Amino acid sequence: MSLILVTGASTGLGLATASQLADRGHDVVLHARSPARLEGLDVIDRMRGVVLGDLAHPEETASVAEQANAFGRFDAVVHNAGTMNGPDVIAVNVLAPYLLTASMPQPGRAIFLSSSMHHSGRPDVHPVLAGHGGSYSDSKLLVTTLALTLAARYPQLLAHAVDPGWVPTRMGGPSATDDLDEGHRTQVWLATAAEHEIDPRTGGYWHHRAAHPPHPAALDPVFHSQLLDALQAHTGLTLPDTDSPA
């Protein structure tokens, strides 16, 4: 069975993802923002462990990475945590996944939650990361690009972006029209399926287990380099040049 970290897993799609993975016998480490987020959760006893920290703050994200590293190298990390509005959109949706990626041994697989709204994001790295009005759509274009950048940079890593659909979670709201159950199944599949069942093996943008074309910028090697350079400059953390040893 696999050792899998799921961020933002105290509610919504993250909780559904963690629960289904645990039900299938995997060793799941559940991330939550704070101890209060765990109150009333009946899945904790089925988890391998819990890590805590607010991903809106770099120092707490670093703590999450440190806590997670105590479990060893993960077979898969599902970067599920996200926020749709407010000043923390870029920090949680883009910077935190990068910081965790740069601060943890490379997993076998990395799955990043995207959105169909990434298609209307601005392929303009520096103003967005500088906090000049970065929107949810901008953040999802950047994190989708991060996923595909990692896939291109590290051939052994299975890195994918997933559009879970507009589902009726707390973030999606009660008016959402997509299937809630389908919202987490692709993440579970990408984290655990045999490699030969996944096509493309890496670098896919998925919706309901079907690969779709992402925003063209997410496939542009020049934009990949611009994003990595900007993230490294913004965070002070760099990624290794090649795949980390297993």
Score class of each variant (00 low, 15 high):
V6Y: 02
S10Y: 01
L15R: 15
A16I: 05
A16S: 13
A16K: 10
Q20L: 04
R24M: 11
L30G: 03
R37W: 01
L38D: 03
E39Y: 08
D42T: 15
V43F: 01
R48G: 02
V50G: 03
V51N: 02
E60L: 12
E60R: 15
T61E: 00
Q67Y: 04
N80I: 05
G82A: 15
G82H: 03
L95P: 00
Y98N: 05
S103P: 04
P107E: 10
I111L: 09
F112A: 09
S114N: 07
H119S: 12
D124K: 08
P127V: 11
S135I: 02
Y136N: 05
S137H: 08
S139T: 09
L141E: 11
V143R: 11
T145C: 05
L148K: 08
L150F: 09
R153N: 04
Q156P: 00
Q156R: 15
A159G: 06
A161N: 03
W166V: 10
M171W: 03
G172W: 07
G172K: 07
S175T: 11
L180T: 08
L180K: 08
E182N: 13
E182S: 13
A191T: 07
T192V: 07
P213Q: 13
A230Q: 10
H234M: 12
H234T: 13
P245A: 14
